[in-house]
């Protein structure tokens, strides 16, 4: 089996304050591994977007992270209402977030596009009424002296 670290987080629905906990823990691990800071940033941003998505749209879910020598694979799994038209949901600015969430400054329709933009591999599957699964992969650059 490939050597790696497996982390699991519960993301609770409707609780904005708890979003970022998983991202924080993962950042800590990556920094201890000495991963290049730009890659840590890409993971942090896409992870946080994923957490917020689950908080807003799915009533929470689970985040699984597997950190390997050359990459991190993050799975965001929820049992929420699912996405009807994934292609549409992937368009920057498209949002189904309710008005009250938008008033908070969230739900600008950049969640999924940002997750795709900041990761190397992006995979999404969703079934209406059942839930959504997003798999993100970020490959780490080789360590340079200057980091």
């Amino acid at each position: 089996m490939e050597k790696g670290i497996h982390l699991e987080f519960e993301v609770s629905g409707g609780n904005f304050a708890s979003a970022g906990t998983a991202s924080d823990e993962i950042k800590k691990h990556l920094k201890q591994l000495g991963i290049r800071s730009e890659d840590v940033r890409r993971v942090a941003i896409s992870m946080y977007e994923g957490e917020i998505n689950m908080v807003i749209h799915a009533g929470g879910g689970r985040a699984l992270a597997d950190i390997y020598l050359d990459r991190i694979v993050i799975e965001l799994i929820d049992t929420g209402k699912g996405i009807e038209d994934i292609e549409l949901a992937m368009q920057p600015g498209y949002s189904t977030a309710p008005e009250d969430i938008r008033a908070l400054g969230f739900g600008a329709g950049m969640g999924l596009p940002n997750m795709k933009k900041y990761t190397d591999e992006f995979h999404i599957e969703s079934e209406v009424g059942k839930g959504t699964k997003v798999v993100l992969t970020v490959y780490f650059a080789e360590n340079k002296k200057s980091g």
Binding site: K3, I5, Q32, L33, G34, I35, I67, Y68, L69, F140
Partner: peptide, 8 residues
């Protein structure tokens, strides 16, 4: 990095 991963 491998040594770091082992330590983690």
């Amino acid at each position: 990095r491998l040594a770091a991963l082992n330590k983690l």
